[in-house]
Simulated assay, not measured.
Amino acid sequence: MEHRHYGWMALCTALGLALFASHVQAESHGDDPALEDAVAYSGRWATEPALCERDEEEDQAITLGPSRIEGSEASCDMEVTEEGDNVWEAQLDCPADDMATDERIRMSLEAGDEAEDDVLTLTYLDREDHEVTLVRCPGPGE
């Protein structure tokens, strides 16, 4: 596959999770500390800040939530485990009507002084450790 396809999949993945992030406050995560801590990576993400702007035709950011990733081309469930401080591994389960895939990713968060300074690196463990670096998109009204 071409490298731009990997970047687009990562972007789509992050978009899906961000949409789900709004449910984080309303839902209980049970006794699973990995999901409670996973809120740090929740939000809208893009490969560059300009892609955070919502376009009427297509959203080019991805949304990450505690157990879901959504983008304009794919929506996947994620089973997340915490690997260390600001590092999580997720098993993606994407339905066949999207871009069918069952693969593992590692999410490494470098938190900045402000939320918009956060950087998230997605490493596709089943794709020769291909990495995609994402920046956090500002929230509504920011």
Rank of each mutant, 00 (worst) to 15 (best):
M1F: 10
M1S: 14
M1Q: 11
E2Y: 11
E2S: 15
H3I: 14
H3D: 14
H3S: 15
H3C: 13
H5T: 15
H5F: 12
H5G: 10
H5R: 12
Y6E: 01
Y6N: 04
G7W: 06
W8R: 12
W8F: 11
W8M: 12
M9T: 12
M9N: 11
M9F: 14
A10W: 01
A10E: 08
A10P: 13
A10N: 13
L11D: 08
L11R: 09
L11A: 13
C12E: 14
C12V: 10
C12T: 10
C12K: 11
T13D: 09
T13Q: 11
A14C: 01
A14H: 04
A14L: 06
A14P: 06
A14Y: 04
L15V: 03
L15K: 06
L15G: 13
G16N: 03
G16L: 02
G16W: 04
G16P: 05
L17A: 14
L17V: 01
L19E: 07
A21N: 07
S22E: 14
S22H: 10
S22A: 06
H23R: 09
H23T: 07
V24C: 01
Q25R: 00
Q25S: 08
Q25N: 09
A26Y: 08
E27M: 13
E27F: 06
S28L: 09
S28T: 14
S28D: 13
H29P: 00
H29Y: 05
G30I: 00
G30A: 05
D31F: 10
D32T: 03
D32V: 04
A34E: 02
L35M: 00
L35Q: 06
E36L: 06
A38Q: 05
A38H: 00
V39H: 02
V39I: 05
V39M: 05
A40N: 09
A40W: 07
A40Q: 05
Y41E: 00
Y41P: 03
Y41T: 05
S42C: 12
G43V: 06
G43D: 01
G43E: 03
W45A: 06
W45Q: 04
W45C: 00
A46D: 04
T47G: 10
T47W: 07
T47N: 03
E48P: 02
E48V: 10
E48L: 09
